[in-house]
Design a protein around this nucleic acid. Sequence first.
DNA 1: GGCTACATGTAAGCGGTTACATGATTTA
DNA 2: TAAATCATGTAACCGCTTACATGTAGCC
Lengths: 180, 180
Amino acid sequence: MGTLKYALLGLLNQKSLTGYDLMKEFETTVSEFWYAKHSQIYPELKKLTDDGLVEFKVETVGSAMQKKVYSITGKGREEFLDWMLEKCPLEHTPKSEFRLRVFFSSALEPQARLVLLQEQLEKYRGRLKHLQSNFEKFPQVPPQGSDAFGDYMVLMGAIMRDEYICNWLAKCIDLCKNAE
Amino acid sequence: MGTLKYALLGLLNQKSLTGYDLMKEFETTVSEFWYAKHSQIYPELKKLTDDGLVEFKVETVGSAMQKKVYSITGKGREEFLDWMLEKCPLEHTPKSEFRLRVFFSSALEPQARLVLLQEQLEKYRGRLKHLQSNFEKFPQVPPQGSDAFGDYMVLMGAIMRDEYICNWLAKCIDLCKNAE
DNA sequence: GGCTACATGTAAGCGGTTACATGATTTA
DNA sequence: TAAATCATGTAACCGCTTACATGTAGCC
């Protein structure tokens, strides 16, 4: 796919950043739907530079430390927008080790099956609380043209996702208990 | 992770199958949460055989065509159950090209943003209908000890997942329309 | 002075996809 | 008899992770 390329271009389309900054983005905000390690980011930035989609200027921090601040070029913005307007096919449902275990769970004792589901439910409830507290940083819906609007939509999606997973797990736990 | 190994062991724990049968499983039932191409399955089966976790007997179909029917061994069943009882950590939220686009969608014209969301909604609504019709093959909840019970739980999860995505997309579309 | 964060790179290896390659059986 | 399906394998390549490797800056 080469999606990392567009993830980087999209972020640099919002503002200029260093490779390190981009790495941090993939660890925080963006991590809900994309991520990459620095070992993948730096070579990709080099390729984007060679292709004229981004450019950088070197800034010096302190006395010796140098960093490369990357900006998107006109050509880069063009390719990014082309990608944004492409048809977006339905994604394959993601692989899930947990669901694989649930699928095979008839191999477990009823008690172990229940533990499997309950432990997972606790973990998702914890993450849900965390996401909900993140959501409070938006006092109201951000204006549609702002970068925050996309942020708002995906965060809302993340919360709804964890809510559905909690509902699903609770339903499975009920089924297991009632069948005993 | 080496999860493919356990996916194969889990399926062979239910019944004996050929490499081709396993490939078909990954294209149908199991595809909701795991999948693999034959080019990955055949070498993995060879490895599992070398490790004594599965064994096969050759069956002849027609006059010349040979197929290998694989069965799980005692050692294989043991390793599979060990894996089933391991702690199952919270999975990283899956990468999604679509959500990436939604995140960046302030770069689009309001009309293009709406089209992006609406097209995706239509696709998910279509798949949801398909999943719901699959679900009708269960006249009632299967007994907890049967292989069908795991199948039932994950299919229920898949339906709930597509429902939540439809709800999320509908909500996003509303936001975009109200902000105009 | 020591720890954490900032900052940038390379190399080996793994999981997975795409493509190459072959041949038998069934069905229209 | 032609096409689709059954059936099994290998090889090249790609995206990504883990580990290797190095050095600076800020903070306690």
